[in-house]
Amino acid sequence: MSNSNMNLKLKVWRQQNAKDEGHFEDYTVQASPDMSFLEMFDVLNEQLITEGKNPVAFDHDCREGICGMCSMVINGRPHGPKQGVTTCQLHMRSFSDGDTIVVEPWRSNAFPVIRDLSVNRSAFDRIIASGGYVSVNTGNAVDANATLIPKETADEAFEAATCIGCGACVSACKNASAMLFVGAKVTQLSLLPQGQAEASKRVVAMVNQMDAEGFGACTNTGACSAECPKQIPLSVIATLNREYIKAKLKGY
């Protein structure tokens, strides 16, 4: 067990509510290399509360990289410097004693700030509600082994389905595009036989909703996939485009 042996300077975005302009505040905090980034924030918050100040609001829940709740831009990068991990899985050993760390919320018009580092991502739910599902009521299913699905296809669908809906892709994109998120769901469902029946309807509805929410266009920069904690591949965007064109040609 290592002791608190890192002294850090933090510049943290503070914003009262959606209307407030917001500003950076500076803090110093002591951390240990074995701490997670969020545990370092716990220490900061306990410190602030004890000093009679308001703690920093930030979203988190599972703290194991699966719920998609945590969402900090750390030194300009969504989820911080390490590839393939969420903020909650980032450990302080990725930083050095004496570092200054800048922490901001996701930035996108479609994700308004609620307070400090917390943002509203309900736009993602509305995109799923527009078509990101298979329309099958409970009780309508056939035996699970009635339809064989090649292992490779199942694996590929699974890979796309591991998206945690965190929104880092949007935050990383200069256009605030949500194509990686939408592409991941469209890819998963279009690969599987169960998703075929409504593939065209789905892709058009989801893209329309994405546009309505104010997400930007995709200019193939690839920052989304590079910053995605689940390493969702850029190819899902190609699949999305292909499915979209196919649907349009069919007159959807």
Binding site: Y133, V134, V136, T138, G139, N140, A141, V142, D143, A144, N145, T147, L148, I149, P150, K151, A154, D155, A157, F158, A161, Q188, L189, L192, Q194, G195
Partner: peptide
């Protein structure tokens, strides 16, 4: 048993064998 049927119908990508079964 119905749970597995329902989830597969929803597009839950369970692990599969090379032959395509669960």
């Amino acid at each position: 048993t119905s749970i597995i049927d329902q989830c597969v119908a929803q597009g839950v990508p369970f692990a599969r064998e090379y032959g395509g079964t669960l």
